[in-house]
Amino acid sequence: MMSSENNCTNLYDHRAVARVLIPLAYSIICPVGLLANALALHVIFSNITKINSITLYSANLAVSDILFCLSLPLRAVYYGLGFHWPLGEGLCKTITLLFYLNCYAGVNFMTCLAVDRFVALVFPQNLVKLRKVKNVRLVCLAIWLLVFAQTLPLLTINLTKTEHDNSITCMEYPNFEGLFKGLPYMLIVGVVLGFGVPVVTIIACYSILTRKLRLAAKSNRLTERSGRTKKARGVIAGVVFVFVVCFSPYHIDLLQYMIRKLFYAPDCKELQSFQISLHITVCLMNLNSCLDPFVYFFACKGYKQKLMRMMKWQVGTHFSSAGRISPESSGIGEEHGTRRNTRITMNTIREAR
């Protein structure tokens, strides 16, 4: 039966809105994601002697996010041109590979972070070998090889397609239609294995860990206030948050459409709605490169302190500049300087003069 996707001409009628909103979103995600993940790598490798399981998983997650962020400017150009890709098949395949590598490497490394914190508190003695640096390095290598193996078949097919208006689309769902026999079955299995299994694992870890900590807190109040306990709960809660906000909408959207395709052939109106929802949920999924630093905030020792120092420095610079430029601001600083513990007051400025 001929799929309706081949005959639809309204799939990109939302380009007028998309060419403004999506590049705007990527122009925010790209620099924020690069800065936050680069800071995480700086914190991790500046304490190279203290590398452990959680910092290794965090470092690999940061690397995958940075690689992905580097591809966003080209994706922004594609959407800015109204779903037109003038850069050739090779570059389209490259950014497609980076997209899926980031998505599923990120899912796996975040799952490893949650499991690592779970094992550290629930089975600290029994499964200690799993958290040794040597074994964690092998796990990270296995994850990269697995994700490469899953995504490399994309390089064997054409990911660009010339549309009826002579625009060239790249990495759009209709471009995959007809290339694989049994595509709905393949994507359903991919969603279950690539998203369903990790999310169930993470929720189970969080639920069991929370229950164990609650029971331990009843017998010993010091356990509840333990820094190690807060760190573990913070890491797993951060991972759950990223999964819910970033990865769930895309995978649920994909799953529901593939299930519908098993029972009937969706018409052009349904496919257009699916296309619009895909562009929105893919944007949300790309947001994970900005939200992953919430996980580092709890996982990486020193990341929180480094981030707070940077923020304090920027706030201090702002007030310092305002004190030099604005007489009114300086007057207020003199009146309330002692109370706010500011370093620059009008008295010192007058003395300097």
Rank of each mutant, 00 (worst) to 15 (best):
V240S: 09
A25T: 14
N7T: 08
T55S: 15
V240C: 12
K230P: 04
F148Q: 01
A299V: 10
I344Q: 09
K161M: 03
I276N: 03
A59T: 05
V77N: 03
P23L: 00
F123V: 06
V189Q: 10
L101F: 11
G227C: 07
A16E: 07
V242C: 15
I349F: 13
M308L: 15
L113S: 03
S207C: 08
P266I: 15
N286F: 08
V115M: 12
R228E: 11
N158L: 02
S321Y: 09
R228A: 14
P31G: 05
K218F: 08
N108I: 02
T210G: 12
P249E: 15
Y250N: 12
E172G: 04
S71E: 05
R225Q: 14
F83T: 04
S58W: 13
C246M: 08
S4D: 13
L209I: 12
N102H: 09
S326V: 04
K230T: 10
P86H: 11
S53G: 06
L24F: 07
F180M: 02
R233M: 15
F109A: 10
T338P: 10
L222K: 06
Q256W: 13
P293I: 02
S207H: 09
R225N: 11
N341I: 14
M186W: 04
D267R: 12
I276Y: 09
M171I: 00
L41W: 14
L271V: 00
L21T: 08
L87H: 09
H318M: 02
K269V: 11
W313S: 14
S64N: 13
K231W: 12
L215N: 11
M171W: 06
E351S: 06
Y79C: 03
L21P: 04
G333R: 15
W313H: 08
P198L: 15
I332G: 09
K134F: 07
T94G: 07
R228D: 11
M110S: 13
S277C: 07
Y173A: 10
I22C: 03
K161H: 05
C205P: 05
L113F: 03
P31W: 06
I259D: 12
E177G: 00
S71Q: 08
A59N: 07
P174F: 02
T162V: 14
N135P: 09
A114N: 10
S167A: 06
I280N: 02
K231S: 14
K312V: 08
G178A: 03
L159Y: 00
G90N: 03
V191W: 01
P73I: 15
T162I: 08
H336P: 00
E177L: 00
G88H: 02
R228M: 12
M258G: 05
S277I: 07
V20C: 03
L255G: 07
D116Q: 08
Y173F: 15
M311E: 01
V128I: 15
E224D: 12
R324T: 15
I28T: 00
A76E: 13
I188K: 00
V128P: 01
L74T: 13
F195C: 10
Y264E: 13
L262C: 08
F263Q: 06
P174I: 10
G234R: 02
S3L: 12
L127I: 05
